[in-house]
Write a protein that binds this DNA or RNA. Structure first.
Length: 259
DNA sequence: AAATTTGCCAACCGCCACTAC
DNA sequence: CGTAGTGGCGGTTGGCAAATT
């Protein structure tokens, strides 16, 4: 049972790519473009799994890749995006032209985690390390983010900016009541509930800057992820995504602000 | 100088989403 | 509607180089 493997494993190379393999892959994609990854290895004369070819191309051979160290601006952008998107490396990478999700993920794990820890922040929640645990804002999460407000560093909000609106749902982590709840706790919860009810009348504006980047994934087969839709936007509210599959840009979230 | 530890990053693996049939 | 095929994503691993003992 189970799914068949993505490719024939018996006669495929594994491990580090040789220069010759790289050259074959580059030559093939230059001639034929990025097509069907499954059939590419055979067509290109490579003894590699299609997935492996795709990964090698996307993470290492693509001509538009930016090499070299991350800048301070990139660091801060990654931190901001991670605080709102979590480990959605591909979405984060969409905001950093020339950087790959794998690169950002590695960089996060090796550098930024430590950087945040040295600032006394929890890398996962972006909250102070000694603070009570709380949920960070994740995709699809309709509860108010627990992270501190991030102010937009962009002094010129007029450029390519949309305001994202999320309707507030009642925060309900697991629905379990604590049987040892005291009267004070209950009063506090009641107070919180009232505040939430009041807030439900309002909306959170997520102030997101959108950058436009050409994308060359399987546009004919599948549209790129629209961050608006991914964040649970009501269709047609602020998102211009037509979901037609012929779009020419992928949204790049850079900043948000809570009002 | 040799052995061991640590850090980095390319690559792999398994799962999921999406599409075509 | 169900299933198979495919691409994409995120977590993890393995190997190499640098640093340390």
């Amino acid at each position: 049972m189970g799914r068949s493997p993505c490719c024939e494993k018996a006669h495929t190379n594994k491990g580090a790519w040789t220069k010759e393999e790289d050259q074959r892959l580059i030559n093939y994609i230059r001639l034929h473009g990025e097509g069907c990854w499954r059939t590419l290895p055979k067509a290109a004369g490579l003894l590699r799994c299609g997935k492996s070819c795709r990964l090698r191309w996307i993470n290492y051979l693509r001509p538009d890749l930016k090499r070299g160290n991350f800048t301070e601006e990139e660091d801060e952008l990654i931190i901001k995006l991670h605080s709102m998107l979590g480990n959605k490396w591909s979405l984060i990478a969409g905001s950093l032209p020339g950087r790959t999700d794998n690169e950002i993920k590695n960089y996060w794990n090796t550098h930024i985690k430590r950087k945040l820890q040295s600032r006394g922040l929890d890398p996962q929640t972006h909250r102070p390390l000694n603070a009570a645990p709380a949920k960070s804002l994740q995709l699809g999460d309709t509860s108010p983010p627990s992270v501190p407000v991030l102010n937009s560093p962009n002094p010129n909000p007029s450029n390519s900016k949309m305001v994202f609106k999320m309707e507030l749902g009642e925060s309900n982590d697991d629905g379990n009541c604590n049987s040892t709840t005291t009267e004070e706790d209950q009063q506090e919860q009641h107070q919180i509930k009232r505040e939430n009810e009041m807030e439900e009348e309002e909306e959170i504006d997520l102030d997101l800057s959108l950058g436009l980047f050409p994308f060359k994934s399987r546009a004919s087969q599948r549209e790129r992820v629209c961050v608006c839709c991914h964040l649970g936007l009501q269709s047609g509210e602020s998102c211009n995504c037509t979901r037609s599959g012929t779009g020419t840009a992928t949204a790049a979230v850079s900043v948000y602000r809570l009002h």
